[in-house]
Write a protein that binds this DNA or RNA. Structure first.
Lengths: 225, 225
DNA sequence: GAGTGGTCTAGACCACCAC
DNA sequence: TGGTGGTCTAGACCACTCC
C-alpha cells in the first residue's frame, strides 16, 4: 500500500510529464490541492517535496508551486583555465555579483595558504537562467596578490563532494534542503606556490555534472569539441 | 531566527561530533527527545531527518536512531591510470567481486560505444571497511576486446554527479535513501577510439570526495575573454 | 491587505522489531 | 506484548510576495 504522498506525487508527476501541467504554470495553492486530494496540508506538502527533489516543481515562498522549465543541464568542465573574470562563461546567463572585503580565517585560510586575518576579496556570484538561480559560486582571492596571469598557472586542483545544501544555499538556489548538491572546490596555484584563487561552486545535483578529461600518455592538448 | 529543527539538529550534531554520543549508541526515543526539547514529534523528526541526510544518524524502523560509526574518508583520485584490476587499491579493505556476463543495452551501450546486445562482462565490486560497505563499483568491459594495455590509454573521462541513491544502492551501502551519493562514471578510451572500460562508482557523499589535479601546459590557448 | 508558502502543535493510528 | 518509528490529521501562527 503506497502512502498518500506517493500516490499524490505520482498523479501530479503524470500531469506534468504528459504536459497537462505546462512548464512555468502555477499549481493550485497547497490548501486547494490538499482539499482536492482529501489530505491535510502537511501531507500534500510532503508530496510536493518529492517532486521538488526530482526537480519537477519549483516552490517560491509567497508565490506558489510552479512546474519547472526544463532547464539546460549544467556541465562543469574540469581543469579549465578560466578564472573569476570569465567563470560562468555562458553569455546566455544572467549573473549577479557581490564583492565583499573580508579577512581569512579557519578553513578558508588553509585553502588559500595564507595566515589568518590576512585580507581577502570575496566574489559571490549567482547565475540565473531566466528567473531560476542555477549556480552559486564564491570566489576568494588574496587582496595582496596582483591579478593572476593565466599563462602562469601551475596547477588547478578541484575537489568534488556530494552533500545536502546549507540552509543558505538551499534558499539561494531555491532548492529543497534535501536535494543533493554537487560541491566543487577549485584551487589554482601559481608557479611560485602561492594560491591565486579559491572558488567554491554549489550546483543543484539533479541537473549538474562535472566532467574531467585526462590524456595520460600523450602531451598533446586539444581543445574539446 | 533559526527554526527549531535546526537548533535541535545543531545540538545533537554537537553531542555526536564531540563524542558525548558515541558511534553505535542509540539515541533516546523520538517521543522522549521531543519532550526533552519541548517540541512536537514531527518537528523532532524533521531535526533527525537533517542528521540522517548528513549521514550522522542511522534510523531503523522499530529499533531506534543510532549514531553512525565514523569511517575513514574516501578519496577518489581522478585521472589515475589504474584499471579494474587495481581499482580500489587499498589493501586494508575487504573487497567482494561478482562477475556477470550480460548484454549491452540502452545507456550502457552508448557509454561503451558498442551496439545494443553486444556482449559485456560486468564486475560488481563492493569494498568493505570492517562490516560496513563503503563503496560500490560496477565495471563494464566489452567481451570482444583484448585486455587493455595501460600504456595505450588515450583518454580517461570522468563524469561526476550528486544524487540520491537508488533503493538498491542505499541497501547495498547501508545508507539512508536521502543521503547524497557521489556518482562517478569513468570511461577509458584506447587510441583506436574504442572504449576499453566503463566504471560506475557510487560513494556515500558524507565521507567521500574526488580530487582532480590539472597542470596546464603552456601550449594551451588562453580562453577568450 | 490578500494570498501564498514555512513552520509548528498535539495528538491519532498503523507497521516493524524484539521478547 | 510493549516499544519503536512511519504516516497522517486539522488546525494555528508567522514570513514572504504582490497589489
Amino acid at each position: 500500500m503506497p502512502s498518500h504522498r506517493h500516490t499524490i506525487a505520482d498523479d501530479l508527476r503524470t500531469q506534468i510529464t504528459t504536459g497537462r501541467l505546462k512548464p512555468g504554470e502555477r499549481l493550485p495553492a497547497e490548501t486547494q490541492l490538499a482539499t482536492h486530494y482529501s489530505v491535510s496540508t502537511p501531507t500534500l506538502r510532503n508530496a510536493l517535496a518529492l517532486l521538488q527533489a526530482e526537480g519537477l516543481v519549483n516552490k517560491i515562498h509567497g508565490k506558489g508551486n510552479f512546474v519547472r522549465h526544463s532547464l539546460r543541464h549544467i556541465t562543469y568542465l574540469g581543469g579549465s583555465r578560466t578564472t573569476l573574470a570569465q567563470f560562468p562563461s555562458d553569455p546566455a546567463l544572467r549573473v549577479s555579483v557581490h564583492t565583499i572585503n573580508r579577512l581569512a580565517q579557519g578553513h578558508l585560510a588553509t585553502l588559500l595558504k595564507v595566515s589568518a586575518r590576512s585580507p581577502l576579496t570575496e566574489f559571490r556570484r549567482i547565475a540565473y537562467e531566466g528567473q531560476s538561480p542555477r549556480s552559486l559560486t564564491r570566489i576568494y582571492v588574496p587582496r595582496d596578490l596582483p591579478p593572476p596571469k593565466y599563462e602562469e598557472l601551475a596547477e588547478i586542483q578541484e575537489t568534488v563532494t556530494a552533500r545536502v545544501p546549507t540552509p543558505e544555499e538551499a534558499s539561494t538556489l531555491r532548492i529543497s534542503p534535501v536535494l543533493p548538491v554537487l560541491s566543487i572546490t577549485r584551487v589554482t596555484t601559481a608557479p611560485t606556490g602561492r594560491v591565486t584563487e579559491a572558488a567554491l561552486l554549489t550546483l543543484p545535483g539533479n541537473r549538474a555534472h562535472a566532467i574531467f578529461t585526462t590524456h595520460p600518455t600523450t602531451t598533446e592538448s586539444r581543445p574539446a569539441g
